[in-house]
Design a binder for these strands. Structure first.
Length: 139
DNA sequence: GCCAACGTTGGC
DNA sequence: GCCAACGTTGGC
């Protein structure tokens, strides 16, 4: 089982929008970055991800799950772009802000800090555990 | 709204 | 294949 981080601007597509999609989930389309796409290619159904709000909030707000493995991105005819489907699992008890992440030494190597602009990022098991701790989630 | 960082594109 | 130009992202 792997862990990921999905970034989205909440005024375009936020956590509430994902929750509204229910169990069917939502196609994570529109990614036009090879690294992000490669990360999605590596995903398996059931993998968990943090849902992060960029620009507004700048915090991880919820846990989502990969609902469907990689398939062509229906928002483009360009065959290079593929995406997965994600669905909301539950909100974090306490959102984890970027500020908190940056202040946490154990998260210094997290992609959110080192590759800030990457929209779909891998999260290590250790980082995930620290994030859960910061979010007030019991292990 | 600004600006820095970074990825992508296109000319050579 | 290199590198400069450009566009986009995202924090501040």
């Amino acid at each position: 089982m792997a862990y990921w981080l999905f970034k989205s601007e909440p005024d375009v597509f936020g956590w509430d929008d994902l929750v509204a999609k229910g169990d069917a989930g939502e196609e994570w389309d529109g990614v036009r970055n090879y690294q992000a796409r490669n990360n999605m290619r590596a995903m398996k159904v059931g993998d968990l991800g943090l849902f992060y709000h960029s620009n507004i909030g700048k915090e991880a707000v919820g846990i989502c799950e990969v609902a469907a493995e990689v398939h062509p991105d229906s928002s483009t005819d360009d065959p290079r772009w593929e995406c997965v489907d994600v669905k909301a699992v539950r909100p974090l008890r306490q959102p984890v802000t970027l500020e908190t992440v940056k202040a946490e030494p154990r998260l210094a190597k997290m992609a959110l800090v080192t590759s800030m602009r990457l929209s779909v990022q891998p999260v290590t098991e250790e980082e995930w555990a620290v994030m859960m701790e910061l979010a007030g989630e019991s292990a």
